[in-house]
Design a protein around this nucleic acid. Structure first.
Lengths: 209, 209
DNA sequence: CATCAAATCTAATCTAGGTTAGAATGGCAG
DNA sequence: CTGCCATTCTAACCTAGATTAGATTTGATG
């Protein structure tokens, strides 16, 4: 019943007015989830942030888990769309290594500044019940493929050491980037510096000498 | 009451016999916690794995959270002791970069093969209630310092690029290593290859050209 | 205005799972 | 053997928090 109308395609039927409330609830859930994690997320908290009473949530979602699943899916989906967009906007002659640099930049900035959804998705991926992992996992797989393609292209172009296991390297890199949500504090460290260091980790760690 | 007798200092008083059961319970908790996460961990499951009834847990731990806290502390503590031990066993003339390589190796092998405690500790650090985060966090801080020292020494010895922000690099690296528990599958990939790739990420990513 | 439906609320349920009470068990000292 | 203390069990309890029922508000429409 619910599920697919968070992105584009605002069709005419699904109540144009207070679908606004649904959005507030979803945003609230993303926020709480990214901060407290799956275990610590109370529907009452979500409701409070959305300025609504808890049962109102059930008007839009049929269960707590469905709400969580939706947040995680939106999170994974948005990061992917963002990265695709950013990459598509690059001039055609951009080197493969530069594309990787841009990807690192986009991933970090998006997850840290633009989207509680992304943070929620990353932090809780391994902590939600099996059952609601499927749909978000499919999105994450697409995102993974995006990165794989970048690495494959870079290695084929001779911009990444030929002997490097790019699958393992990619997983390690994404781990490093994802884990940032666990320690990063905007008041302690500049985002620019973080991005620069992560980029150098890739450029020097994977690039040809 | 409980709490400190998991490491050394086996004093005479605390029932030498079936403190064995306490151990089974703790091991079971580590195992379940590392697999299901804080949210998904039922005392009944822990009890089942420990071949005991749930209430028996309360003979050794005063609450679920105390049990969890203990697992997390032991996890953090053991990794640290393991790393200290391994580093101490190195010949005095070992280069700083080689020490880093050994540290990467030790961290990965320990977290992936030797200890459910470590996995439990890593996966759940950011997901347990504030209250029980304190004691494990103190251990983690010591572990962090160990790594910081390694990087500082390596940079001072001129084996790590002088312009690299070693604090950020270290956090990124530990993120990469920690995140491995989220994706690593022993049947799919060889541990040796993983270790080698992670090491090259450090050697090339941080080392001088 | 009156009416209807959508949207939200208050109050009441229901249940998983942590926790407690108190009864058995079981080994060992005397 | 017998009593005792440590250990573990079974049965009961209790609460947080998800969910449901049904009333109430609100706002658009004729």
């Amino acid at each position: 019943m619910a599920g697919m109308n968070t992105t584009a395609t605002e069709s005419t039927s699904p109540t144009p007015k207070s679908a606004h409330t649904r959005q507030r609830i979803l945003d609230a859930a993303a926020e709480v989830l990214s901060r407290k994690g799956y275990a610590g997320t109370r529907l009452a908290d979500v409701a409070a942030v959305a300025r609504v009473q808890a049962p109102a949530i059930y008007y839009y979602f049929s269960s707590r888990d469905e709400l969580v699943e939706e947040v995680m899916w939106v999170g994974a989906n948005r990061v992917r769309l963002h990265l695709e967009e950013v990459l598509a906007a690059l001039p055609a002659h951009t080197s493969q290594m530069d594309r990787l640099m841009v990807a690192v930049d986009a991933h970090l900035r998006f997850e840290l500044q633009l989207s509680h959804y992304a943070t929620a998705s990353i932090r809780n991926a391994g902590h939600v019940p099996e059952q609601i992992r499927i749909r978000p996992a499919a999105e994450e797989a697409l995102y993974s493929r995006l990165w794989r393609d970048l690495f494959v292209a870079a290695q084929q172009a001779g911009e990444v050491r030929p002997d490097l296991d790019i699958n393992v390297f990619r997983l390690l890199l994404l781990g490093a980037l994802n884990w940032v949500v666990e320690w990063w504090n905007p008041r302690t460290r500049s985002l620019d510096e973080l991005v620069a260091t992560a980029q150098s980790m890739v450029r020097n760690g994977a690039g040809v000498r």
